[in-house]
Amino acid sequence: MSALRTLARNRRALLGLLGLVFFLLMALLGPELLPLDRMPDPDRRFEPPSLTHLLGTDYAGRDTLVQLVHGSRDIIQISFFTGFFAVLLALAVGLTAGLLGGWIDGVLTALTDVFLTVPQFPVMAILAALMRVGDPVTFGLVLGLWAWPGLARSLRSQVRALREREFIEAARVMALSPTWILTRELLPNLVPLIGVYFIRVARDAITVSVGIMLLGLVPLKVENWGMMLNMATFQSGALYVPRAWAYLLSPLVAIVAFQFCLIRLASGVEELVDPRLRRQA
């Protein structure tokens, strides 16, 4: 509870948290409140915002706000699953390398370096396109496959440092089982690192997945934020229709706002974990 209170006292982090809750509610409840109507209405193309269409209409006369709300589900799922798979892989590689050491550590460290060097966006785009990724879970897996090395590297060095500390040694002298030491002594010390990294990867996944969709490389639904940008920029010519500004800017602003919340939250969690940072806030 004290952790939550410290987080709440940090105004910037609180803002991030509230924003995130807003987006989650939008994804959970929004689609129930605003039913999706895919029927085109050519008379209402590219309408600017009005009372009936708060964010205007798209190239086929459909409501932009409804699309934005329905699209939030995909984007949140993609960013969550990317973070999830990345953390899973990083835990597997980082803990193994840190705990076992020796030649296994050498091989895994080299592997981490290789994955860290390969150009991320191109490889993610190629894989997503060739696998014809169509659902958020697979999308998350493809992105997560290339997002783990940073965390794996930090986990490895953390584990190696912790191994030498007294409390681990004490646990070993007490002949506690390795599983106990790992889950009760080591992991709790790694949770903050994992948490911050999870948020960071989830945020990166937004940019990357939207980018891949903007290029039109994956077959996803029209009402996805990335697809909305793709339609507005490359397909429907909305970019060149001044009246259509709301259609183009809505997904863009949503993407920036969502990321902004995650950045704030991550910096809040970092300050929570590392009191030295608190003074600067």
Partner: peptide, 18 residues
């Protein structure tokens, strides 16, 4: 710096283009 982290190059590019 925080804002620019949330605005990747391609979105800046889109805004510049606009």
């Amino acid at each position: 710096a925080t804002l620019s982290q949330a605005l990747p190059p391609f979105l800046i590019g889109l805004l510049l283009l606009l």
